[in-house]
Nucleic acid binder design. Sequence first.
DNA 1: GGACAGGGTTACG
DNA 2: CGTAACCCTGTC
Length: 280
Amino acid sequence: MERKYRYEMIKVQINDFDLEKISKSGQCFRMNPIMEQEKKYALIAHGEYLEMEETTDGICFSCTQEEWDKLWKNYFDCGRDYRKIYRSVDKTDEYMLRAVSCGSGIRILRQEIFETTISFIISQQNNIPRIKKCVQSLCSSFGEEKYNIRREKYYAFPTPERLAGLTLEDLQGCNLGYRSRYILKSSRMIVEGEIDFAGLADMTYEEARAELMKLCGVGIKVAECICLFALHHVEAFPVDTHIKTVLLKYYPDGFPFEKYEGYAGILQQYAFYYDIYGEM
DNA sequence: GGACAGGGTTACG
DNA sequence: CGTAACCCTGTC
């Protein structure tokens, strides 16, 4: 196969890694299949553009070994043995056994903190396709313009400073609804140091969650999402409408946190995925 | 075609 | 402390 443009590619062997499931898992909103090419995905994260493809003997990434080691390896949580998580599920926990089997290949990503914060403020009372549209619109309007390996334009996620300087009017074109106000206010709080945003990475899960909830438009659920999908506190357990349904139906006596101490959030993600895509 | 709900949160009472 | 209202779209 002839490639139009020359660019670095590396092939990595990773167990329990499924691009489609990761892209559909609802934790990231800028990873999508590339139109013309089946099973090939493009992702924009940490300001960078990455293409990915599953092959029979590994997964191809459009980056150098150095970039992989420095950024993407960690982004995809490659230091963790997910097989160990599957095996750790209680044999009597039938729902979770099915959920994990359905969602095997999902990874919990390490996403950029500001992007995750704004994206999950947008996510409230919203559905995934429209969240993606809102995020894309925000990026193409206010993000830095860059060029990818195909020499196509793409946009980084806007900086806090850029969003903080906007007005409600500026955001009207992004169709964010009442969330516009939350985004402006929270961005300004971050820029003006009203919350210790830079210090979040060094806080414990509980500290980070409390600090995040000071932001406007960030309640318990959104804070848990940021803790899990950006700060990688895998004990964080976001409860949304899907998880609420699951808890009511399959865990009427409460979720067995004691069995899954320290990583309930990962299992939450399998349950979320299974509730949306399972048994179709 | 209008009504309704979609990964909640805020701001009232 | 419970709950209506918040904005915008895609779907029925």
